[in-house]
Every structure is written in C-alpha cells, then in structure tokens.
C-alpha cells in the first residue's frame, strides 16, 4: 500500500525517450506534458473529454489528457503530436492532412492526427462510416469534417500503395 500526499514521480517514455518528472496527484496529464515537458501540441479545450483537442496516445491508445491524471502514465509510453511530427513513417498521414486542406485554425489538429493514427493502426482500411464512428469524439469547429475524412482515406490509400 502506497500513500502519495503531495509529490509523485512519474517515470515514463514520451515520444521514444525516457523521462522522469515530479507532479502532484491532481496534476492532469496535459499539464504535465505542456508545463512540465513543454510539449505544447496537446491543447486543453472543453476539459470534459468531449472535444479531443488534448488527445495523446498512452501505450498506443488515445486518451483525454485533460482528465487523465499524470500519474496514470507511470511506466507507460506516451505519444504526442511532437512525436508524430518527428517520425518519418507518419509523413503519409500528416501530408494527407496538409494536402486535403484538413487543417484550418489547427487547434484540433494534433488531437485529430493522433486519433487518426490510432484508428489506422487498428484498422488500416477503414470505411467512411468507420472513420466517422471512430473519430466522432474529436471535434473540429472549422473544417466541417469532410476534408478530414478525405485526408484519412487518402492516408489509408497511400499506405496500401506505399
């Protein structure tokens, strides 16, 4: 039985590198990433797990970093948009977002890309309905979604040809 009063050391892997950082139990993952590690790509918006702007992947699965406590990622691997951007293997997906004009204000984009990556990791050839179903938890207020669907379809298509 462990009791943590004020400080908890979170040792985890972020974007391929091991880090250790001290946080309080109530610290949200998004704050640890943004304020502690200066990984500002994840954004806080609705703060209620509805919008997806704070999406990061924990052991490959998307979560809402606004609500998941930082201590939850002890011993785990976290992927943020900075990790995706630095990974050449992800260029097919990020290029598809860019070429399909699936980015406008960009505030949702990091979460949107990570959610799309997670979808394609599990389902490399999603149908349009499967894309809408999986992505329904990520809100974009600018694009009207159509071009994001097209971007994900193109990324999937390119991966096949790839």
């Amino acid at each position: 039985m462990v009791q943590i009063n004020q400080k908890i050391t979170v040792a985890f892997n972020v974007n391929g590198g091991d880090v250790e950082i001290d946080v309080t139990p109530e610290t949200a993952l998004v704050d640890m990433l943004r304020d502690g590690l200066l990984l500002k790509g994840a954004k806080r918006s609705c703060d209620m797990q509805v919008c997806g702007a704070c999406t990061v992947l924990v052991d490959g699965l998307p979560v809402s970093a606004c609500t998941v406590p930082a201590f939850e990622v002890r011993g785990k691997s976290v992927t943020t948009i900075e990790g995706v951007a630095a990974d050449d293997r992800m260029a097919g997906l990020t290029d598809a977002f860019i070429d399909n004009a699936a980015i406008q204000c960009g505030f949702c984009t990091p979460g949107m890309v990570l959610a799309a990556k997670s979808l394609l990791d599990r389902n490399p050839h999603p149908s349009e309905d499967e894309i809408k179903d999986y992505m329904r938890g990520n809100i974009c207020r600018c694009t009207g979604y159509k071009k994001i669907v097209e971007a994900i379809q193109e990324a999937a298509q390119k991966a096949v040809q790839g």
Binding site: K40, G41, I81, E82, F97, I98, D99, A101, G106
Partner: peptide
Amino acid sequence: RRIDSYDKISGRAVYSVD
C-alpha cells in the same frame, strides 16, 4: 499547401494559450 501547415501539424504552432 497552407504556409502554416507544418506549424500546425507538428504541434509547434504557438497560440495564445502557449
């Protein structure tokens, strides 16, 4: 391509919250 594409797809775009 939008000239802000890379800033925004990479997470390095700076918003007021940043």
